[in-house]
Amino acid sequence: MTDDLGRSFVGYREGMTDYEMYEANRGCWRLGPRAQDERYAIFSFDGIVRQAVEISSVEPAPKRTMRSVVYGRVLGRGDRIYDQYVNGPAPESLGRNPISYVPDEAGPADAAFHFGDPESNREVELVAMSFISGQYAVDGWIVEDVSALNCGWDITATKGPRLRHIKVKGLSGPTAKVLFTGNELRAAGHDLNWSLVVVTNALTSPRSREYGPDEIRRLAVPLAYEVDLSRS
């Protein structure tokens, strides 16, 4: 992943925290179609990898034509990609560019945080969707899978005049910690019929818990910001 101007790592200084580094450098980049399919990115400065990120989504940058914002989870010690790249030499493919994709083969550290390989993640998602759809159907709701429409929720459920827009998040482990795209957060902020249902231990002993939009907005932590470098 490279920016179009080949700038160095923006605003890097020794002693920055992970949050400060992410905040200073997750601005608006000119990205190709490949960005939508990548899982990991690394950030380098002065020939050394300084940070690694697991990508959750790539969204259009607000008010910036042809630019994108990458949302994701900053990796730390114990994550396979962090341990493999951070504080080591930047891959030769970076050249003068500060951002690059890296291979996304899953490892033990990914499983420990419940972000497995794409095939396993898909299995967890399907099980969670089936589990929640079944619960609502048993309760008399008419259930429609709209997950492919990218509308900010996965299930539209109706029961007489009642309408529910349900976002489903499936996890293979017991910890209810999930990633949200900008589109999902927008739905949580504006749709009165929206709710999140998290299914933990989806592949073994699935249990679900529902969260309202107010709770999601209160707990959500921003991991990407627009950086207008034209004003620097």
Results as ranks from 00 to 15, higher is better:
G11P: 09
M66I: 11
K177M: 11
L126E: 13
A157V: 13
R207Q: 15
N193D: 12
D4L: 06
D214Y: 10
A24P: 07
I142W: 08
D37T: 10
E92N: 14
Q36F: 13
E105S: 03
Y225S: 06
K159M: 03
Q84H: 13
H165G: 08
H114T: 12
V146T: 11
L149N: 10
A157M: 09
G76Y: 07
R34G: 14
G107V: 01
Y40N: 11
S93D: 11
Y12R: 07
A112N: 03
A224G: 15
G182R: 14
E59G: 10
H114S: 09
P98A: 06
R77S: 11
Q51P: 06
V178L: 03
A220E: 02
E20L: 02
V146F: 00
I166R: 12
K169E: 12
A128K: 11
V49D: 05
Q36H: 14
T2A: 03
R207F: 00
R186N: 13
N201A: 11
V138D: 06
E184A: 05
A41C: 13
S56T: 14
P60L: 03
T200C: 04
L185Q: 10
A187R: 01
G140L: 06
Y136Q: 01
A52H: 04
D37I: 00
I142R: 14
P91D: 02
Y225F: 14
N97S: 13
G47R: 10
G11D: 15
R217S: 07
V168R: 14
I155F: 03
L31D: 06
N193H: 15
I155K: 04
A157R: 07
I142L: 14
Q84N: 14
V102W: 01
A128R: 08
S147Q: 05
K167C: 03
G11T: 04
G32K: 09
A188E: 00
R207M: 10
L163K: 14
A187C: 00
A111Y: 14
A112T: 00
V86G: 01
G78F: 05
L5I: 13
P174M: 01
V86P: 07
P33Y: 11
G189L: 01
R39T: 01
V197Y: 02
M1E: 04
E210R: 15
R186H: 13
N97K: 07
E38N: 11
W194E: 11
G189M: 00
V49R: 02
L192T: 14
L149H: 11
D4Q: 13
V197T: 15
A148V: 05
G173E: 00
I42M: 01
